[in-house]
Nucleic acid binder design. Structure first.
Length: 824
RNA sequence: GCGGGUGUGGCGGAAUUGGCAGACGCGCCAGACUUAGGAUCUGGUACUUCGGUGUGCAGGUUCGACCCCUGUCACCCGCACCA
């Protein structure tokens, strides 16, 4: 084996061999425990970036590890291949989206294979392929039949640049998540999924996910935004019911005005034909012209206008003025709010500005009657100015007043969610067409299952007109009504790509089934995903939608699992010079370049070694070289080890028969197995797993340098070290394994084990502390008792000097660690 | 403002959860082998006035604190006029 480490030859050879052997193709196996390992599938943008390499390298370590541990590991890969960039490429370069996308998939598949990741390519899927989106459409029909897919006119987020609507979740700081354009509000007919029906379950079931990061669960919790309160109906003088939502019904005696969102229908109704009509219209227009970002900013100066009408507070019977303002959102609650300036800071600011009455109804204990200088919002204190409720504590009043208004029929306790229904229609071409036709006689109809998929037409034009290119197809619009057989028109919208990616993990279980979306027994065998890995940027969107759709499919009886991902690992970003790699910053390091120069094993090793998976990783060219040097050292180490006389015929190691450096090397081997095993499986700390391997390599090298090597010890070390390397650097590990004389791939080998006997030490070094200060280090028998340790410490030369003139007050001995003598 | 997180050498990061702070690697310094080295190998590398001092800062608990508690500062991420 006295050759150079030729990574290029080694990596190419083994990738080819593994593919030919079908090493990673799996089927359900009743003999083995299943393990479904999944990394978030990529959008086929054209080429892989370092973030991909990191994501898949992390996944591959776990896949290979669990496979060596004897589990039946499914590790699939596919493409989230619908989406806007393909259409933009069509507009810019005149390439058909399908062609562009498929070419990118080919290229990236090749790159993935070059990374040597252990994918079962037989299960590859692409969401843009008719064999896949047929079933996305079918799932739509299932939701439609359940009443979970519906169409309504709504004020929606519109991106003028992408010329399409966006889901709430795709609006980031008032801007389009994709292109950064400021999002507008438009009233449009759109399709929705009724995710709000699942709000409570999506919230409750977060506790079923102990394997998820708290951060992600908290983000979902906040996004769902559950709040308990009372919906209380005020009545206008004209007799209109104007319900408000409040979490603080205890403050109802302090209501001094009412606010309607500018879009609230009562605003127009109550001002129609009055002197207020024009000024209010002007005000509403001014507010609606604000960008979404300004409108929802807490920095926005609160402004409002009296609309000339009054409402009656049902509890007090008091007449209060109705205002409209820029700080009440029509989308949340009822779009109407009761104004309690004494106990809500926003209301306080507003009332102070416009001279509205401020009526205190809760006071802290020992209140001296002083005026408020800001709203008193503590959940404490006692009721005042609140009729029969005076004197009750605030928490008590909250319940009592809620009871009271419910008894009177003025209101009821409700739960309100921030979560909105999921807007899934897009006015775009490159997505799964919504399988609906409109018949002039029979109305809106689902496309029957046997007519799926509704194929995307190819006779379309791609121009940035702001209209869906689907509308330019002469053929697409024409359909037949499934009820009456008459001519009908097709729905022109396509589905949000997040619909496609909300069930792809189910399709992998039964990837090419022509008859169903997925076979139930196959899905029940593999699901749920045991370990899911991806970027934290999907914490809300993708992960919530996937949970929702899984629950729907569960309720439909299509799969047992009602949560898709048991464990979630959110990997950090790959940075260069402190910033995320991006073309505009010019700090991109291409995986291809690194692989060409050092090989895949080096690239993977660096990425896994430089930081724990959850943290951001700073790219460092010099450190990559360090990893390359390490692999060269490993290579030379094995070459030397194989030259140790007798190594090929060596018998098993007898721990008891070893001593000195042989015993230490033997222990090092077992300690390393233990550390690496725990670091991978328990702690997800691949960086420390690798450093443990490095320490063993260093010790092993020194052992070969300095000692008359014991063939059995060396044989054991190489036989255990190679498999430890396999999950991280699969190619070099395989090459070494074969050099060691094995006939079968290292990736089919068993994960090494360790013995407690081998870990044991005869003597250990402990420290001797006086008052917590280290005074000496002692080599002591490993089995020494506390008494013996203390005796040993006290017999040290110098002990008298360290304790001179003082009396021992406490003696602490921790076997294996230290002795601490406290003196005074 | 609310929620989550992070602060350790020149740098990335260890310290398996209260017991030797700085493992491992990068970088740097010195040396060896070399016609040569940006190859390889060897040694050193927190600070220090050599007493000690050190894990953002100030306290506390403890025989003992990077780790637990209280307060505080800085930075990062998410949400944000949600009634």
């Amino acid at each position: 084996m006295e050759r150079k480490y030729d990574f290029s030859a080694i990596e190419g050879k083994w990738q080819k061999s593994w593919e030919e052997q079908g090493l990673y193709n799996v089927q359900p196996d009743p003999e083995k425990e299943k393990f479904y390992l999944l990394e978030m599938f990529p959008y086929p943008s054209g080429k892989l970036h370092m973030g991909h390499v990191r994501n898949y390298s992390i996944g591959d370590v776990l896949a290979r590890y669990y496979s060596m541990k004897g589990k039946n590991v499914m590790h699939p890969m596919g493409w989230d291949s619908f989406g806007l960039p393909a259409e933009n490429a069509a507009i810019k370069n005149g390439v058909e989206p399908a062609k562009w996308t498929l070419a990118n998939m080919d290229n990236m598949r090749q790159q993935l294979k070059t990374l040597g990741i252990s994918y079962d390519w037989n299960r590859e899927e692409g969401t843009c392929l008719p064999e896949y989106y047929k079933w996305t459409q079918w799932i739509f029909t299932q939701l439609y039949k359940k009443g979970l897919a519906y169409k309504k006119k709504a004020a929606v987020n519109w991106c003028p640049s992408c010329a399409t609507v966006l889901a709430n979740e795709q609006v980031v700081e008032g801007k389009c998540e994709r292109c950064g354009e400021v999002v507008e509000k438009r009233d449009l007919e759109q399709w929705f999924f009724r995710i709000t029906d699942y709000a409570q379950r999506l919230l409750d079931d977060l506790v079923k996910l102990p394997g998820w990061p708290d951060k992600v669960k908290t983000m979902q919790e906040n996004w769902i935004g559950r709040s308990e309160g009372v919906q209380l109906t005020f009545t206008t003088e004209a007799g209109d019911a104007a319900p408000v939502f409040t979490t603080r019904v205890d403050t109802v005696f302090g209501v001094t005005y009412m606010v309607l969102a500018p879009e609230h229908p009562l605003v127009a109704k109550l001002t129609a034909g009055t002197e207020y009509e024009q000024p209010v219209k002007d005000f509403v227009k001014k507010v609606s012209q604000l960008s979404f970002i300004d409108r929802t900013s807490s920095e926005l100066e609160k402004e409002g206008m009296f609309i000339g009408a009054y409402a009656i507070n049902p509890v007090t019977g008091k007449k209060i003025p109705i205002w409209t303002t820029n700080y009440v959102l029509y989308e949340y609650g009822t779009g109407a709010v009761m104004g309690v300036p004494a106990h809500d800071q926003r209301d306080f600011e507003f009332a102070s500005k416009y001279g509205l009455e401020i009526q205190r109804v809760i006071a802290p204990e020992g209140w001296d009657g002083s005026e408020l200088t800001e709203a008193w919002t503590e959940h404490a204190g006692y009721m005042v100015n609140s009729g029969d409720f005076d004197g009750l504590s605030m928490p008590e009043a909250l319940e009592k007043i809620a009871d009271f208004v419910e008894e009177k029929g003025w209101g009821k306790r409700i739960v309100n969610f921030r979560l909105r229904d999921w807007l899934i229609s897009r006015q775009r071409y490159w997505g799964a067409p919504i399988p609906i036709v409109y018949c002039p006689k029979c109305g809106e109809q689902l496309v029957p299952d046997d007519q799926l998929p509704v194929l995307l037409p190819t006779d379309v034009e791609f121009k940035p007109t702001g209209e869906s290119p689907l509308k330019t197809s002469p053929s697409f619009a024409h359909a037949t009504c499934p009820i009456c057989g008459g001519p009908a028109t097709r729905e022109m919208d396509t589905m949000d790509t997040f619909v496609c990616s909300s069930w792809y993990f189910l399709r992998y279980c039964d990837a090419h089934d022509p008859n169903e979306a997925f076979n139930k027994s196959l899905a029940d065998y593999w699901m749920p995903v045991d370990q899911y890995i991806g970027g934290v940027e999907h914490a809300i969107l993708h992960l919530m939608y996937a949970r929702f759709l899984t629950k729907v499919l569960h309720d439909l009886g299509l799969v047992e699992a009602d949560e898709p991902f048991t464990n979630l690992l959110t990997q950090g970003m790959v940075l260069k010079d402190g910033a995320k790699m991006s073309k505009s910053l010019g700090n991109v390091v291409s995986p291809d370049t690194i692989i060409e120069k050092y090989g895949v094993d080096t690239a993977r090793l660096f990425i896994l070694f430089a930081a724990p998976p959850e943290r951001d990783l700073e790219w460092n060219d010099a450190a990559v070289e360090g990893c390359y040097r390490f692999l060269n050292r490993v290579w030379r180490l094995f070459s030397r080890a194989l030259e140790v006389p007798g190594i090929r015929e060596a018998a098993a190691v007898d721990t008891a028969a070893l001593s000195g450096a042989d015993r230490d090397m033997h222990r090092m081997t077992h300690v390393t197995v233990k550390r690496v095993t725990e670091d991978i499986a328990v702690r997800f700390q691949f960086n420390t797993a690798i450093s443990a391997i490095m320490e063993m390599v260093n010790a092993f090298t020194e052992y070969l340098d300095k000692e008359q090597a014991n063939a059995a010890v060396v044989a054991e070390a190489v036989e255990k070290l190679a498999p430890l390397l396999a999950p991280f650097v699969p190619h070099i590990a395989e090459e070494i394994w074969m050099e060691l004389g094995h006939g079968e791939s290292i990736h089919l080998a068993q994960w090494p084990d360790y013995s407690e006997a081998a870990l044991a030490k005869d003597s250990v070094e402990i420290v001797l502390q006086i008052n917590g200060k280290i005074k000496a280090r002692l080599e002591v028998p490993a089995q020494a008792s506390q008494e013996e340790l203390i005796a040993l410490a006290e017999s040290q030369p110098g002990f008298a000097e360290w304790t001179a003139g003082k009396t021992p007050v406490k003696k602490i001995a921790i076997p294996g660690k230290l002795v601490n003598i406290v003196v005074k």
